[in-house]
Nucleic acid binder design. Structure first.
Length: 270
RNA sequence: GGUGGGGUUCCCGAGUGGCCAAAGGGGGCAGACUGUAAAUCUGCUAGCUAUGCUUUCGGAGGUUCGAAUCCUCCCCCCACCA
C-alpha cells in the first residue's frame, strides 16, 4: 500500500506486475494513516472494477485481519479521528496507560476486563464508548454471532513445511538485504518513516534503523530480521488456521494444482 | 608460570546453605485478535506411572539434617602480570 517501502515489504517487481496487474500498490504516502476500514473500501472498489471487466480478482497477502475484514465485513463501529488523536495523546504511553485503566474500569468494566493489558484495544474501546455510550464488545456481536462471506471466494492458505519455511525466510532476508534494503530504509527514515502514523510498523525497518545508528552489528540486524519475520509467519499460521473457516490448506509446493483449480472454478462461475 | 574474575536450565543472565526445577530477558510452542494488524497482547516452556517422585546449576569427592550456594582436587574460559 505504501509508497517507497519497496524492498522491505517485498512488493512484486516491475516484471511481475507486467504479467499480472496489481492493485492498491503505492497508493499511500508513508505519512498517511491507514486502517482496515479504508482498506476494505478500497479493496471493494478494486474488486468491483476488476469484475466489471470480466476478470477474476485474486486477493493475495498475509495481513490476516485485513483479509478477514474484506471477506466477512466489519461491524459498523464508529470512529472519530479527532477524538482518537486526543485519546492517543492522553493515554498511549506508559504513564497514560494507568490512567486509562482506571477510567475504563469505571466507565466500561466489560471491555476493561477483556483488554486490560492491551493499551491500543482499550483506547479503541474508549473511542467507541465515547461516541456511542456502548461497549465495543456489544457492538461487535453481529460479526461474532453471524459471520457470513461477502464474496463467493475460493480461499487457500499456503502451508509450507516449517523447516523449509524458516530456510525460505532466511534466503528472502538475505536477498532483500543484498538488493539495497538498507539504503531504502535509510531514505525512508530520512523521510520520517520512524515517526509516521502507521507505516513505521513495517517489519524490519526499525531494526535496520538501529544498525544504521551503530547500535547493533550487521549480523545481529540480520538475525533479528529473520527472527521477527519467522515470528510473524507463525502468527499468520495461527491466524489463518483459526480465523478462516472458508480457507483450505494448500500444501506448498505440491498442492499448487489445487490452488489453480480453485481459481479456475471461480472463473467458470462468472 | 603468577594473580584476579568466571563456568547456572535451549541461549543470555540473577541467585552465595533450606521459601530453588532455580528471578528476569531472549528463543521456542500454543493462543487471542473488528478502524495502528509485518502491529499489539496472553499462557506454557526439565522429565515422569505427577497434590508426589526422579534428573539438573563445569567434573569428581567432602562438610551438613539439608548444597547451585561452603571445603578439597581436577578440567575449561576471560582479564591482568610475567
Amino acid at each position: 500500500l505504501y509508497k517507497g517501502l519497496d524492498i522491505g515489504t517485498a512488493k512484486p517487481d516491475k516484471q511481475e506486475r507486467e504479467i499480472v496487474p496489481h492493485h492498491l500498490i503505492d497508493i499511500f504516502e508513508i505519512s498517511e494513516r491507514l486502517d482496515v476500514f479504508r482498506y476494505v473500501e478500497l479493496a471493494d472498489r478494486a474488486i468491483c472494477e476488476i469484475r466489471s471487466r470480466g476478470h477474476i480478482p485474486v486477493i493475495a497477502g498475509g495481513t490476516g485481519m485485513y483479509i478477514r475484514a474484506l471477506l466477512y465485513g466489519l461491524d459498523p463501529l464508529p470512529s472519530n479521528p479527532e477524538l482518537r488523536t486526543k485519546l492517543d495523546a492522553e493515554f498511549d504511553s506508559e504513564s497514560g496507560f494507568e490512567k486509562l485503566k482506571e477510567l475504563m474500569s469505571a466507565k466500561d468494566p466489560g471491555d476493561f476486563q477483556r483488554w486490560k493489558q492491551h493499551r491500543r484495544k482499550l483506547i479503541r474501546a474508549l473511542e467507541v464508548f465515547e461516541i456511542t455510550g456502548k461497549s465495543i464488545t456489544e457492538l461487535q456481536k453481529t460479526w461474532k454471532e453471524n459471520p457470513s462471506l461477502r464474496y463467493d471466494v475460493f480461499a487457500g492458505t499456503l502451508v509450507w513445511d516449517r523447516e523449509i519455511l524458516k530456510r525460505r525466510i532466511e534466503i528472502r532476508t538475505d536477498k532483500m538485504l543484498r538488493s539495497g534494503w538498507i539504503d531504502e530504509a535509510a531514505e525512508m527514515i530520512r523521510q520520517g518513516l520512524l515517526h509516521s502514523p502507521t507505516a513505521h510498523q513495517a517489519l524490519g525497518y526499525k531494526i535496520i534503523a538501529e544498525y544504521l545508528e551503530g547500535g547493533i552489528s550487521h549480523e545481529t540486524m540480520r538475525t533479528r530480521i529473520i527472527t521477527s519475520t519467522w515470528q510473524y509467519a507463525r502468527r499468520q499460521i495461527t491466524w489463518f488456521k483459526n480465523q478462516h473457516p472458508e480457507s483450505v490448506p494448500i500444501n506448498m509446493p505440491v498442492d499448487m494444482e489445487k490452488l489453480i483449480c480453485g481459481i479456475r472454478r471461480q472463473s467458470h462461475d462468472y
